[in-house]
């Protein structure tokens, strides 16, 4: 990083590549998979913008870990602002039911979701599995399955409201 601060592009590419791999592991342990890429990208941008604050007499690990932790807390705060409660497994899409009645339309909607939420909705809402069964089947935690269902249904609602339901 010290070389990168002096303008060494090769060293910078190397340090960012290693940082990216480390950050991916860091965020995978702490965030839903759908949020990991954004968090890694956001943190790398912060590292780039604040690289002048790194003190070469200190270790690089704690420095980037502190930035990653800051970005992680930022993500959690943002998620808390946008998502107040998790819906339980009996939740329905409510007013939009009529618009998603056919299996064809539903599949088109699911195809527009990220893989995690789409799979969670298919297993729990369409195939009738419990949250725990879906969690075992997908390798996700039960909480993450609930979060994915909630997000997926929200996204589907938005798509239907916006008339972008593939019809």
């Amino acid at each position: 990083m010290e070389a990168a601060q002096a303008g060494d592009a090769q060293a910078y590419r190397l340090v960012l590549g290693e940082a990216q791999a480390w950050l991916r592991r860091f965020f995978l342990k702490r965030l839903p998979p759908s949020m990991v890429d954004d968090a890694v990208q956001d943190t790398l941008m912060a590292v780039h913008e604040k690289r002048h604050t790194f003190d070469p007499s200190q270790k690089f690990g704690p420095w980037i870990a502190a930035i990653a932790r800051y970005k992680w807390i930022d993500r959690l705060r943002a998620a808390r602002r946008t998502q107040t409660t998790l819906l339980d497994e009996t939740v329905a899409v409510g007013d939009h039911e009529e618009q998603v009645t056919t299996a064809h339309a539903l599949e088109k909607l699911l195809a527009q979701l990220k893989p995690g939420p789409a799979e969670a909705i298919r297993l729990v809402k369409l195939q009738g599995l419990s949250i725990e069964e879906a969690a075992r089947r997908t390798g996700q935690s039960a909480t993450l399955v609930k979060v994915n269902i909630h997000r997926g249904l929200n996204r589907m609602s938005t798509l239907v409201m916006g008339g972008n339901d593939g019809e």
Partner: peptide
């Protein structure tokens, strides 16, 4: 691509 953009954008910085 992001890393490449940062590398291209890299300029020496005055350390804080």
């Amino acid at each position: 691509p992001l890393i490449e953009r940062f590398v291209t954008d890299l300029r020496p910085v005055r350390r804080r």
